[in-house]
Amino acid sequence: MSKPKKAEAIKIMKTRHIPDPGQAFWDGYWNRLESRMNAEGAFETMIPAPAVSPAPRRAVPLVPRWALASAAGVALLLVGIQIGRWTGPAGRVSGPSPQPNAALAGEVADYLTRSKVILLSLANFDPGTEDPRALSPAVQQQVSRELVDRGRKLDALLAGPGGKRYRNLIAELKTILVQIANLDPEENAQAVEIVRDGVKVRDILFKISISLMSLPDSGKSSRTGL
């Protein structure tokens, strides 16, 4: 649209004539307005001024915005890392190592449970108050020898990458089980104490418990009945 045409249109529009409603209209304007306001109760509905309240106290003290933003960023990063650990693929970040298959896991669980029973009988023995012969060494020594033999077989079966931690535990158990197998409490009561100390120092019982918890449930239940 060209400027002259636009100006011409506006010039024409500006000639618009508003009819004067007349003096009578203006003279009665207030009376009509007042009547309407009285009828509508408008004179009683003046809205009060908004209350002037003191400035709200700052919830956060004056800390530079960049500091708050940095802190928020770090917090967000930490939360993200934590969520990644919880929800990421198992073994990728900090998940458990590969497990032996179910049958082998049952064998391991059974071996660990039997070893634990033997060790507990020693750990709970008090040489100061009990007769070393109450240990029934014949039975414990026989079981220990069997467990040493089974340990050798399991060591061979756990040669894969997921079996390292179990092989290490079996090796530690083997040392103690061999001591038990060779124990002669009638001739050397101190030998019982040496085995007990070895169990405590190596935290063998704790390691057995942890390993049993990490094994598949089917293996534990099917082989040990736990």
Partner: peptide, 22 residues
Amino acid sequence: GIRKVRKELAGMRGLAPSEVRY
């Protein structure tokens, strides 16, 4: 608005508008 107004006023050139407004 002005474009529409112009369309409505088309052909009105030649009228001699007075400058009267209330």
